[in-house]
Amino acid sequence: MTQIRYADRIRMLEAPRGRVRCVLDTDTYNEIDDQFAIVQMLLSANRLDLQAIYAAPFHWPGYVEHPAQGMELSYDEILRVLALMDVKPEGFVYRGVQSYVGPEKVGRDAPAVDDLIARARASSTADPLYVVAIAAISNVASAILKAPDIIDKIVVVWLGGHALEWPHTLEGNLRRDVGGAQVLFDSGVPVVLLPCLGVVSHLLSTVPEIELHVEPHGEIGKFLAQKYKEYTDDHVGWSKEIWDMAPVAWLLNPDWCESVVTHTPVLTDQVTWSVDQTRHPMRYVYRIHRDPILKDFFDKLKARSQGAKLTAGSANTKVLELPPRSEDRRRPTRNGGHPDR
């Protein structure tokens, strides 16, 4: 693998300045939060230069039996979200791998992998491409295996695993492709890790909040609110994490995601964290400030629906002035909770 100078690695782990060139890797049909993250990025165009979206694989036994099927369902869901935001998918959305990297650590072929390699190679250590990853890391790990030279040209901001002090790290994004995650952590690529239980699990909302601050704001607001409310039939005393907004939030304002630079852990075959203080550094988010993240999103969504040019809040992000569409394509309701986290 390519080696990165320690000083360069530390600099790459700092929060980026100015407008951020980034791509999004997402298993959008897997849950309800990826849709929020896509909209969050599109509404933050002054801060985030979102250049591509990659459909990532996932599977659930009894629901989605093969990762290739999950990737295709996610690809279609990305198109639904973009249609509601009036964003054209051509040259912007790419299908991802159809199999996980797996314990054999084999890089898989896919248009998303090729696009990521090309964009990474057009970047540099001084001006890296930020890879916002909110799924199993198979697309990204495949790119690293196929083109190890890209590790000094990208920063991977990944929602994966649980807190480092957790007794295990059997979280959905990580456990689906443990081999891919091991490739990520062992490669030396700069990683900003946002763990689920113990950290991002604080990023909660409720049905009344969603009904007040999301649902009234255009067709995309109705779509997101419907996804949120369909997650379960019992909304009494119920709240739900919007996990995938957290990596985007770190890019928008790192003060919302408190972090430290620490040694990259060893991910064992038993899916636990192991400590090795000789390992290369990564940035580890240990606390999420839920309120400003959601307020920023709500303000931007409202401003877009009202045709405003700029949102309120510290991000000062220009809202895409795109009319919502009236299309209402829905996937089947999934009640009974989500096993991933």
Rank of each mutant, 00 (worst) to 15 (best):
D276F: 11
D177V: 05
F58H: 09
E211G: 04
E31L: 01
E230G: 04
S142D: 07
H168E: 14
L224G: 09
A143K: 03
G91T: 01
P292V: 05
Y6M: 12
H59Y: 13
Q69Y: 15
Q69K: 15
I78Y: 01
K146F: 06
H162R: 06
G172V: 05
P148T: 01
W256A: 12
G337F: 05
L294N: 07
P247H: 04
R17E: 14
T2Q: 14
A15V: 08
I10P: 10
A143G: 00
W166M: 15
E104H: 10
Y100S: 13
E165A: 14
L24R: 01
D299K: 10
A249S: 13
N335G: 14
P216T: 03
G237M: 03
A120Y: 12
Y75S: 08
E215H: 08
P195K: 02
A308W: 10
D25H: 06
L194A: 11
S142A: 02
G237C: 03
P61L: 13
S74G: 13
V200Y: 10
I117Q: 08
I117K: 07
P16L: 00
G107M: 08
T311C: 09
N173Q: 09
S74H: 03
F298A: 11
H213N: 12
V93P: 01
M85H: 11
T125D: 04
W60L: 15
P16C: 00
R287N: 13
Y286A: 03
D291V: 12
A37Q: 01
N335E: 14
H59P: 06
M12L: 13
E321M: 13
F92H: 02
I53H: 00
